[in-house]
Structures are given as structure tokens and as C-alpha cells.
């Protein structure tokens, strides 16, 4: 069997998602630029947000209200903090597309009657969805770069596209983690509903742990921060200090573990009902 056939087929069947998801996120970016006509409006917005409690601010993906007074900070808050949540939905749908959907629909019986090792199905489809995720982020970034033209000259001159590019790249390790976590759940559990429930719980709990850690104290706060993958996403940190390679390595490392575990789980269990 030709190497890459399933990879190519998955891409062919799903490439439109790049346009749909990337375009949707791009529209969000354009909307954010339209929402900030000048620096004065930005400062007013930052002053308003400063009054919010830290946990609420954290829930919206921002711990430093002062950053909102800068165009870069506002875009990161408006685009990437929401972008990761939107991409979480994509990641779950993509991860389910690797084995769970076809197993639930009974299609996998026919596919696995072909001369095709199970691991190959998992590997090629997962890689295809990761490529699609990269495509979505690329389209989003292009839309964001184009979207700067919708804001005033003052704002446009202060937007740093290199920071935006790093923030876009910073989405990918977290999306990879969410995709592989979903692939693992789909490979481990035979029932799609259970797999989806488990991975949704994982993402939601991680999200709440990340911002509730702000109101917790001491060891509990430390634990909650450390246990939530959103901590390692840290879009604010990317704006201040650039990409954090230890965070990226950690997220990708866990993704690889989940990916290998998915292959192991799918290889050894019964398929279907």
C-alpha cells in the first residue's frame, strides 16, 4: 500500500476546514481591528478592564490589564485568547475524525478489512489533521495581517507582526495537545460519546484550573497552574518574551506520549460494537 494514501485522502476530504476555521478566526481578527479605531479608545478599554477582579481577567486570557492598552496586547487578548478556545472545538472535532467517527458510523469495519495496519490509520490521519491545524493558523495569521488595514494609522503603526506571528505559532503546540488527547480518547474508548465527554472535561477543567489558580493560594494555586495546559499556552508571555521553548517542548512532549498511547490502545482493542 502506498505510504501517505490515507494522509492524502484525509487532506483531500478536509482541506475546506482550513478555509472555514481559518476564515472564521480571520474574521475575528478583522473585527478586533475594527473595534480599536485609535489609541484613546484602547486606553479607555484598558481602564475599564482594570476594575475587574484578577480571576475574571484571567478567565478572558489576560492577567495584566495594562497590556490591553497596547495594540499588540489587545489583539492577543481579542484574537489569540479566544482563538485557543475556538481551536479547542476544532481539535476535538479533528481528533474524533481520526478513528472515533468512523468507528461509531461502522465504516471502520470496511476500512480495517483492507490490508492496512491499524497504527498506520492513526498515524496518517492524525498527521493530516495536524497539517490542517497549521493551515488554519496560517490563514488566521494572513487575515490578521490583512486586518491591520481596517484600523487607524496610529494603531497600524504600533502592531508588531512578528509578535503576532509568534503568537500564532504559539497556538499550535496547545492545539496539537488537544488533538492528540482526543485521538487518544477515541482510540481508548469504544464509545464516541464517552471519548468526547472525557476530552471535553479535560479541556474545560484545564481552562477553569488555569484561571481559578489566580484566586487560589499557595500549593493549590501552584498545582492548578502546573496541571492546566493553558498555563503553558500563555499568550501574554509570548508577547513579552517571545516563544517559550520549554513550554512548547512540554506540550509537544505530552502530545507525543498521547499519540504513542493512542496507537497502542487502538492496536490492541476490539473494534466496533
Amino acid at each position: 500500500m502506498s505510504v501517505g494514501l490515507i494522509f492524502g485522502d484525509t487532506l483531500r476530504q478536509n482541506w475546506r476546514q482550513i478555509l472555514y476555521w481559518g476564515g472564521g478566526l480571520g474574521l475575528l481578527a478583522v473585527y478586533v481591528f475594527i473595534a480599536i479605531p485609535d489609541m484613546n479608545a484602547l486606553q479607555q478599554y484598558a481602564n475599564l478592564v482594570k476594575a475587574l477582579p484578577p480571576a475574571i481577567l484571567e478567565a478572558f486570557g489576560m492577567s495584566d490589564a495594562e497590556m490591553l492598552a497596547t495594540p499588540d496586547g489587545f489583539i492577543i487578548f481579542g484574537v489569540f485568547s479566544y482563538g485557543i478556545l475556538i481551536m479547542a472545538v476544532f481539535a476535538v472535532m479533528a481528533g474524533m475524525g481520526v478513528t472515533a467517527n468512523e468507528e461509531d458510523d461502522g465504516i471502520l469495519d470496511m476500512v480495517l478489512s483492507l490490508p492496512l495496519p491499524r497504527w498506520r490509520l492513526v498515524v496518517e490521519k492524525t498527521l493530516a489533521y495536524l497539517v490542517i491545524a497549521v493551515g488554519i493558523v496560517a490563514v488566521m495569521f494572513i487575515a490578521l495581517a490583512v486586518g491591520t488595514n481596517f484600523s487607524g494609522l496610529e494603531i497600524r503603526e504600533q502592531v508588531h507582526l512578528d509578535i503576532m506571528a509568534k503568537s500564532a505559532i504559539n497556538l499550535l503546540p496547545s492545539v496539537t495537545l488537544m488533538i492528540t488527547a482526543t485521538v487518544f480518547a477515541g482510540a481508548f474508548f469504544r464509545r464516541k460519546a464517552i471519548a468526547m465527554g472525557v476530552v471535553a472535561a479535560f479541556i474545560i477543567v484545564s481552562y477553569f484550573m488555569d484561571f481559578l489558580a489566580e484566586v487560589a493560594s499557595g500549593a493549590l494555586s501552584e498545582f492548578m497552574k502546573a496541571a492546566s495546559f493553558f498555563t503553558y499556552f500563555n499568550s501574554e508571555g509570548v508577547m513579552r518574551e517571545g516563544l517559550n521553548f520549554s513550554n512548547i517542548a512540554l506540550l509537544l512532549g505530552v502530545s507525543i506520549v498521547l499519540f504513542v498511547a493512542s496507537i497502542w490502545a487502538f492496536q490492541r482493542r476490539d473494534i466496533g460494537a
Binding site: 500500500m1 494514501l5 476530504q13 458510523d105 461502522g106 469495519d109 470496511m110 478489512s113 492496512l116
Partner: peptide, 29 residues
């Protein structure tokens, strides 16, 4: 082996020709 399940489930949006092509490609490249 050639296999026909009791209940045939395939990708609903693809044409039969696309399914046949895909299966043939997987089997024989």
C-alpha cells in the same frame, strides 16, 4: 480477502466510484 459486512456503512458524501477508487488505491496503489 474480500469482505462484505452484514450492514454496509461507508462515507455518505462520497460517490460509489470514489469509494471504489479509494479501496482500489489502498489495495494496489
Amino acid at each position: 480477502i474480500g469482505f462484505l459486512p452484514g450492514e454496509l456503512n461507508l462515507w455518505k458524501n462520497r460517490t460509489a466510484r470514489q469509494v471504489v477508487n479509494y479501496f482500489a488505491q489502498v489495495r494496489a496503489g
